[in-house]
Design a binder for these strands. Structure first.
Lengths: 264, 264
DNA sequence: CAGTGGTCTAGACCACACT
DNA sequence: GTGTGGTCTAGACCACTGC
């Protein structure tokens, strides 16, 4: 069905999702609608991170469109790092566990050597408590003041040197049961643990970066003089549907590392 | 020609550009080869920034491929911000002058309000001299030690407050004739001036970011106490073919602004 | 109106991975 | 070999722009 040159009894093509009166017709291409449907399946967990999704032919049959239309929908999802294609094997739900995209949100790189050469970060969890969200934290996470959030404070070290001090706030309900042990002992990226243990997949994030001086407590935890300039990074990470699911405030030492960014 | 099911006298499809012996066959899809050809035309200036390039049908005829193949090539160029498509009008060579992408390399945003609300940065050029490149500058610009480079030092102010102190190094030959007046008086982004006056188009850049304390001279120029933490941003900007064409070292005040980054 | 990019389809064949 | 994603083509029609 649904080709523009099909029989007149077919469902009209390009049917906009928003019917009724609207100042803009809200024209939406078929492949965008298909993309939306696939996105829904990802959201509800029909296929879990790392799993194979149905082949393009199968999806085309399910949605009653041509393979090319499904292809274009998946192309966009792949461009947004929501799925990963592998020729000859299939299309997989993206996961932070995948070797090739591990730590893709960590932009702090050692000045010499590469990330892999550092063994891996040592994590020490200083705190992991359920608290009530302040007005500010609540606003940034789209919660209400006083809602329960999990607050984690940790230090990450590279090559034995404490380098990152981070405070993390997570919505309480979605992360019920999160423990300090879990944060400390999980092998691999924290976001991979969030996927596996809580079914929360972070798909994008925004960061605001500043230069700051640490307060006494921060300086002590990073073992630096109190006049050391440090990088302040505030991150809001989002899951599907642009829903904020993590607030992270970190301060980074940048004497042996730097924040690397590609502009294009 | 060139379809896989065409007559046997046709040019073979998927002809790799690297003939002869090679450990990897270096298979290159047709559309990638077309993309390369279009890229060449952009490089040699067959179409200048802001200009309309030939229609997909014309290019398909020129290269003897189908419109779909040209389309896929242009799709990738558009994704890399090298060209811009406008339905009903055509495909244009991207330019830093275009309103919608002005200052796309400037990631420092005011904490309140938006970039447009600030009027526009005031530029004061402190220096604009031809010098010989140090070993370090030469290495970062892929030049030889002692080659001529243009060194510019300037302060950018927002709302009357000096906010950015920048040193810029440019390869001498490509920027012959660049003057302080030009740097100061050009309306619009500096990179737009580079395009218009020198035919150098920056297409991407890498940045390394650190937190630093200013030396006395820097503190004076930014009118801040010498213990103010500042953001140090080292940028290498590239033109076509990944050729480095600018080294920029800036220090940013981040008391009223922040460096904004989107992770995905 | 004609010309542009944008969408959709159908079919063929290629490169790759598993079995 | 079979099945996957990847490439390429050809043709039709849609949406937008400007004459």
């Amino acid at each position: 069905m649904s080709s523009s040159q099909s029989s007149p009894t077919d469902t009209p093509p390009h049917s906009a999702s928003t019917l009724g009166v609207s100042s803009t017709p809200a024209f939406s291409p078929l492949y965008q609608q298909i993309k939306g449907l696939i996105l829904q399946s990802l959201q509800i967990g029909e296929w879990r991170p790392g799993e194979l999704i149905p082949s393009e032919m199968e999806l085309a049959a399910r949605f009653k469109v041509s393979q090319g239309t499904v292809r274009k929908a998946i192309d966009e999802l792949a461009a947004e790092n929501l799925v990963m294609r592998r020729q000859g094997k299939g299309t997989f739900v993206a996961t932070h566990s995948a070797q090739q995209v591990q730590y893709r949100f960590l932009k702090l790189h050692p000045d010499v050597g590469d990330l892999a050469g550092e063994g891996r970060a040592q994590r020490s969890i200083l705190e992991c408590k359920r608290i009530r969200a302040s007005a500010e934290i609540a606003r940034l996470l789209s919660l209400r003041s006083g809602d329960t959030v999990v607050h984690v404070r940790r230090v990450l070290g590279f090559a034995g040197i404490p380098t990152i001090l981070e405070d993390i706030w997570l919505p309480g309900p979605a992360f019920k049961g999160l423990t300090a042990e879990q944060m400390a002992n999980y092998k691999g990226p924290t976001y991979a643990m969030f996927e596996g243990d809580f079914g929360v997949r972070m798909v994008r994030a925004d960061e605001k970066i500043r230069a700051v001086l640490p307060d006494e407590a921060q300086a002590a935890l990073l073992a630096v003089p109190s006049v050391t300039p440090l990088l302040s990074v505030e991150r809001i990470a989002y899951t599907y549907n642009d829903m904020p699911m993590e607030l992270r405030r970190g301060i980074y030492r940048t004497d042996t590392h730097h924040y690397k960014n590609a502009l294009s």
